[in-house]
Amino acid sequence: MSTILAIVFAALVLNTLFGMVANGFIVLFICIDWFRRRKLSPADLILCCLGLLRFTLQIIVILNITLYSFFIRTYFQTYMITINRTIWIFMNILDLWFAAWLSVLYFVKIGIFSHPLFLQMKQRFSRLAPWLLLGSMVFSAAVAIMTGK
């Protein structure tokens, strides 16, 4: 049984490390481009936030696996469970919001409609992208704090 557990643990760590490398490269190249051009497009901003969030989520997964594997008594203390649950809920909700905003951005960019409401949304989305991401963070934090207790 311990051999199977070690294989699963190794697979989880490798998968997490590959995810960290991929998301790290996305964030790195977007930041390099940002420093060169001194301007960040809404698509790059959303992709950078999403990559950074997923990179952080992978770090949290590794920390949880390590804490559960080597410090099991600490892992199951009440305050650690509350902190862990709150952070996990916050990160997952925020990840869903960022992915949804990326989908909306792509829809607005490639959609060909002539309805006035869609045209107005197409013009305003670029300016609203930072505020939408910030609002998503605030909303996710509020939900995580309310449900994490």
Rank of each mutant, 00 (worst) to 15 (best):
D44L: 10
Q123W: 00
V8T: 04
N15L: 14
I30Y: 00
V13W: 08
T82V: 04
T74R: 14
A129S: 08
Q120T: 11
F71W: 13
H115K: 14
F18T: 03
S69N: 11
T147C: 12
N64Q: 15
T86P: 02
T16Q: 06
T74I: 07
R85K: 14
C48D: 04
R127Y: 15
H115I: 05
I110W: 00
M137S: 06
I26S: 10
M146H: 15
V8L: 09
M137I: 09
S126R: 02
L45P: 04
A141C: 09
F125D: 06
Y68M: 09
I110H: 08
W101G: 04
P42L: 02
S2V: 13
I93Y: 09
L117M: 06
L53V: 06
M20D: 01
A141W: 05
C31V: 14
I32Y: 00
V8P: 03
R127S: 15
W131A: 09
I7R: 14
A129D: 00
M91K: 07
A129H: 05
I60D: 05
I93P: 05
V61A: 12
M20R: 06
N84L: 03
P42F: 04
G111E: 03
L94N: 00
I62K: 09
A6L: 15
K149T: 10
A142Q: 06
G148N: 06
C48K: 05
I145F: 11
F118G: 14
L94E: 08
L5C: 00
L52I: 06
A142M: 12
P42Y: 06
D44P: 03
T78N: 07
M1R: 08
Q120W: 02
M146C: 11
L28S: 01
S114V: 09
L94S: 04
V138A: 02
K39N: 12
V104N: 05
I60T: 06
F25V: 09
F71L: 08
S69V: 01
L134Y: 08
I112W: 14
L17D: 01
I65A: 14
C48P: 05
F35P: 10
K122P: 10
L133R: 02
I145W: 09
G111N: 02
G51Q: 01
F25M: 12
A11K: 00
L45V: 01
A11F: 05
F107Q: 05
F18C: 06
N64C: 13
V21N: 01
I112C: 12
L5H: 07
T3P: 00
P42I: 04
F107A: 09
Y75D: 09
Y68S: 09
T56L: 02
I60H: 12
F90W: 08
V104Q: 07
F18H: 05
A10V: 04
S41P: 06
R38W: 08
K122F: 12
R124D: 13
G24L: 03
L12M: 13
I89D: 03
